[in-house]
């Protein structure tokens, strides 16, 4: 898989160093768009404001997916919501990362036998980090942010590359749950 963000000065900066620079920059300035699907939205205000202050690490909320690098899915994902999540995810610019909150996007949680929620978010869009718990506290969220930053630094957060590589398979999974795309 070739990286999509080409080196601007290939003759001066070696390819390996360029990737390192890019990873170092993107880990220190993660702009996030939080897709507040469920109860997890409640945990975001304390994480953003003076108690836990995530702006320390350069993480700030952004208004639109065009500007964001990090997608937070905070809670259960209904089929109808999943359509919007996929659309938001595809509007984000590479490199992009996804964090899924709570037990619902992991295995369905208490919505295990619901008729209209999906059970594993990872089947539809690539997830870089899960936070288990119902709901995770702000400490857990901060921990996830730090772990994601470490993963980006070591090049392990490669969900956006996986989405490109297995695009047809992700699309097939999405098509299986959506009856149509326009509702």
């Amino acid at each position: 898989m070739t990286p999509e963000n080409p080196n601007p000065l290939p003759s001066i900066i070696p390819e390996k160093d360029w990737k390192k620079i890019q990873r170092m920059l993107s880990k220190r300035s993660l702009w996030m768009v939080h897709f507040c699907t469920g109860c997890g939205a409640m945990e975001m205000p304390p994480t953003m404001t003076s108690r836990y202050d995530m702006e320390r690490f350069g993480i700030i909320p952004m208004a639109t997916p065009r500007q964001a690098d990090l997608l937070l899915v905070t809670g259960y994902v209904a089929v109808k919501t999943l359509k919007r999540i996929v659309r938001v995810y595809e509007q984000m610019q590479d490199p992009k990362y996804v964090i899924a909150f709570g037990s619902c996007p992991i295995n369905g949680g208490i919505y295990w036998d619901s008729y209209n929620t999906i059970k594993r978010l990872d089947k539809y869009i690539p997830v870089d980090m899960y936070i288990a718990g119902c709901m995770p506290r702000p400490e857990a969220i901060m921990d996830a942010f730090l772990k994601l930053m470490k993963d980006i630094d070591e090049g392990r957060a490669d969900g956006w590359l996986r989405y490109k590589k297995y695009y047809e398979k992700y699309k097939a999974n999405q098509r299986r749950v959506f009856k149509r795309w326009d509702e």
């Binding site: 999509e4 963000n5 920059l25 993107s26 220190r28 300035s29 610019q93 590479d94």
Partner: peptide, 13 residues
């Protein structure tokens, strides 16, 4: 850092 990151990103809009 923000500007560096944004300029290192690709825009496909």
């Amino acid at each position: 850092l923000d500007v560096g990151k944004l300029l290192a990103k690709k825009s496909n809009i």
